[in-house]
Design a protein around this nucleic acid. Sequence first.
DNA 1: TAATATCCTACCAAATTAGTAGAATAATGT
DNA 2: ACATTATTCTACTAATTTGGTAGGATATTA
Lengths: 141, 141
Amino acid sequence: MLSKKTQYAFRALTDLAENYGKGPIHICDIASRKNIPLKFLENILNELKKSDFLESKKGKGGGYVLKHSPKKINLAAVIRIINGPIALLPCVSLNFYRRCEDCNEENCGLRRVMAMTRDATLKILEKKTLQDILSGERLII
Amino acid sequence: MLSKKTQYAFRALTDLAENYGKGPIHICDIASRKNIPLKFLENILNELKKSDFLESKKGKGGGYVLKHSPKKINLAAVIRIINGPIALLPCVSLNFYRRCEDCNEENCGLRRVMAMTRDATLKILEKKTLQDILSGERLII
DNA sequence: TAATATCCTACCAAATTAGTAGAATAATGT
DNA sequence: ACATTATTCTACTAATTTGGTAGGATATTA
């Protein structure tokens, strides 16, 4: 399951997408509109900034802005930054690979199935973007 | 990611599948063959028994046996028992549904995408069985 | 230089995960 | 009946992760 932090991240990014083009958005506006603990949200937006999803400006008139169009930010990328691996086993993770103990990877049946589910999941999450989850959007399959 | 406990569960079930038809298998044989902490494995096999995957026999000649053929045990069912929900959000879980706060489900874009990924994942995990992950098996997609 | 807003370091509490200890119970063979 | 064997149950404990909080440092603008 996605952590609460990840759900907060999606809610905050959605808010920024809804206000895309309006200049920097205050973190406290996002926090109050989306009902997210302010100080926790600071951490989250900071991580997203470090990972190049956001730009920020300090001081009066400051705030956060999406660095790229909502159409360019895919959900898998956000999950990887805030939540971690998408695969169900470390040994099939593309971005967080770790070998599993006592397992001959070439010949591990569980690994083969988990690689399939990873692919099926990524096929969706890498295609869907922030734009696709805005509440007004119709979802085209 | 699947917990270590879940990976142990799969390894143990695989061992029981490999020895299917040979009568009760000692838990300490499974533990040593598959390198799983014995007392931890006790908990796991007990849960699997309570969930009707295994039968057990006490005393001399006792041990654990798969209650059904390895072909009948699908991976999603095992994950649900030992690991919990398969869906990425509680509000799209079929077996562990919980409403999420501050979210209008009818109109939540994230929810729609997460329902799609759940379906894609289940399509695989509910079809694949213990038999499919035995190391000798060829995986037919 | 005051006001504003992000940035950074360092905590803290609660929950979950991973594992252990030891006695109770049941089945079997002698 | 009784010793042996193996599962079952209750109850801990330690380590890690998750979900937050506090407070000062830094940068920007007016």
